[in-house]
Design a protein around this nucleic acid. Structure first.
Lengths: 348, 348
DNA sequence: TTGAAAGCGCTAACAC
DNA sequence: GTGTTAGCGCTTTCAA
């Protein structure tokens, strides 16, 4: 017997409603609603009876109805931009770790996480998550050149936090690690270990790459050392592009005794190429990376790198968003970075 | 002027509704609803007018109302169990890759992904996502000993797919790679490379570990070779537990010339420990892993391992679930595995 | 301590 | 081609 009516939709798998429980408990739905919400007005005995029936029926309040009525979804949207042109962000172990940190922080606060992968060109659709009430706030991975658009969202009152580096004139909040400082720490360490001509491998087109490179620059400057522009190799990391690049430098006879790879994945792939070419790390060449992904510690040689506190990053992103949900103004956060020295930069 | 009424909720940030657009366009909300849904009944000119207003207002239909009315959420729940006792699944690069594959497949079909991290002890709450209508179906990472519970969910009609190995008497659908075959391929390869005493490092308590170990067993059996039980080291992978284990075997003078690590992370950490102890890979010891995580290719030596098609796995999981949503019976899927031979098992 | 009733914003059947 | 209207399942005010 379908509980249809003139205008009912095709009726999905018929889940129990408050009315069903009410009928069985011989009370009205108001009482059931109160009992289930833990309202102390309901008589103890009534509540117990209702609870038992609810459990027996596997009852769980219809979220849509609840959201519609209360105006709250207790859900946060996480937007992971997707660049079809292969600078694929989700496969980056680093960003996935961040996702883990965020979900932990949200779970702790009783929020759900809605993950949305949006093609970079359609990034203006980001706010739909909010405008449709599906999410109460948005965490976005990277600015992706949508700086102005993100500013507008904040002006519109969309609760928003961006994982990334702060930019001038930004109105939205960012949480990010100090990429310039990280780059400076790594490069300073390489110089202190005696390297004099350090090559930079990364993609300066990306905001983070740019900042890490700036740190590389600063470290030299602070020590009054010159920088050879020929040693900066800014290319997108696709396939074995970095390996080819380093081998071509060797072939051309360009001299260098240290390498700063703007990510661990870059650094590890370069070490593999060097080893294959008979260049020993760290004996002939010091190499350092960035991110401290798991395998950096297990690599051979183990990789000197910069550690960013991912769990903490997730926490801060969520904290920052929650502040906005409370109507408070949210400060941008710059997370500390830490140099982790391992075998790849340790001279015998 | 707040649009309040006697029973209105505290009125969240006042988003535009159909009624607002209707008033501005001087039509009724039905027409607006039709126009926005692309219903061809609406006159071209009216539609354009409505569209413009909607865009200007940043209108996006209230998802809760839509879900409530249509009974559809176009959302899939992904449950990532969380073991507080540190067998942390989300940090596993492997599972995060799977998450990436799933979201891609869902995005393609216009579904949203709701990620939920549930403590293993509360895994009976899995169905709440479905019972509350928040999700139309559920993808779960691993059975986690909830075999019977999952069977019950399927009997209740909850659309459900589990990533993992098939178990006897299972009523739910699983998608997984052939772990036994993978273990057999790796072990067979090690034997073919001349290893005679191969140690197994992994956790047989976990379903996948058990199957990989079974493959290890099968490979020996097929070749009529004996297996020394002392070479099976089944311990949870926590911190440097595997490193300690392999070093203790060396100290005890246990002889072995090959190692099968049940995951790449295990294998890489073992190689690091061996190298530090002066044991050369592959010269003194052949080592292989499982999963083909990114750094396996860049490690030094590069790691022989088993590749599982993660993008495809995500696709299959989603396919399988969609079949159930269409009311069809879903077959479990066993994905192929592929041996990837690299330097760690190649004798000079 | 409980019940009655309004209404959240939307879709769709039914009129015209 | 457009309007009228019922109702999805819930929370909450008001009345008893």
């Amino acid at each position: 017997m379908p509980r249809s009516s003139k205008t009912a939709p095709p009726a999905a798998a018929t889940r129990p409603r408050l009315a069903d429980i009410a009928r069985m408990a011989d009370v009205t739905i108001s009482t059931v609603s109160r009992a289930l919400a833990g309202n102390p007005l309901v008589k103890e005995e009534t509540r117990t009876r209702i609870m038992e029936i609810a459990t027996a029926l596997n009852y769980s309040a219809n979220a849509a109805a609840q959201n519609l009525r209360t105006g709250q979804s207790r859900t946060i949207g996480v937007v992971v931009p997707l660049d079809p042109a292969s600078r694929d962000p989700v496969s980056a172990p680093f960003l996935l770790a961040l996702l883990g940190g965020i979900i932990d922080a949200l779970t702790e606060r009783g929020y759900d996480m809605l993950v949305s992968r949006i093609i970079v060109e359609r990034l203006d659709k980001v706010a739909q998550l909010y405008d449709s009430g599906r999410a109460e706030g948005i965490i976005m991975f990277g600015q992706w050149g949508y700086h102005e658009h993100l500013n507008k969202l904040t002006e519109r009152g969309v609760p928003l936090v961006v994982w990334g580096a702060p930019l001038p004139h930004q109105k939205y909040a960012t949480v990010g690690s100090d990429n310039a400082l990280g780059g400076e720490l790594v490069t300073g360490h390489l110089l202190d270990q005696g390297a004099r001509r350090i090559a930079f491998f990364g993609d300066i087109e990306l905001n983070e790459g740019r900042l890490r490179h700036q740190g590389y620059h600063n470290a030299h400057k602070q020590r009054g050392l010159m920088l050879d522009p020929a040693l900066t190799r800014s290319i997108p990391f696709v396939g074995d592009s970095m390996q080819k690049e380093v081998l071509s430098m060797l072939e051309q006879g360009i001299k260098f005794d240290g390498i700063f790879g703007a990510s661990d994945t870059v650094a590890l792939s370069i070490i593999a190429a060097l080893t294959a070419a008979g260049v020993r790390v760290p004996d002939d060449m010091l190499v350092a990376g960035y991110d401290d992904i798991g395998p950096a510690a297990y690599a051979n040689p183990s990789l000197t790198t910069i550690r960013q506190p991912m769990q903490e990053a997730g926490q801060k992103l969520v904290d920052c968003l929650m502040q906005q949900l409370d109507g408070r103004h949210a400060q941008s956060v710059m997370l500390p970075t830490e140099l982790v020295v391992r075998a790849s930069t340790r001279r015998a």
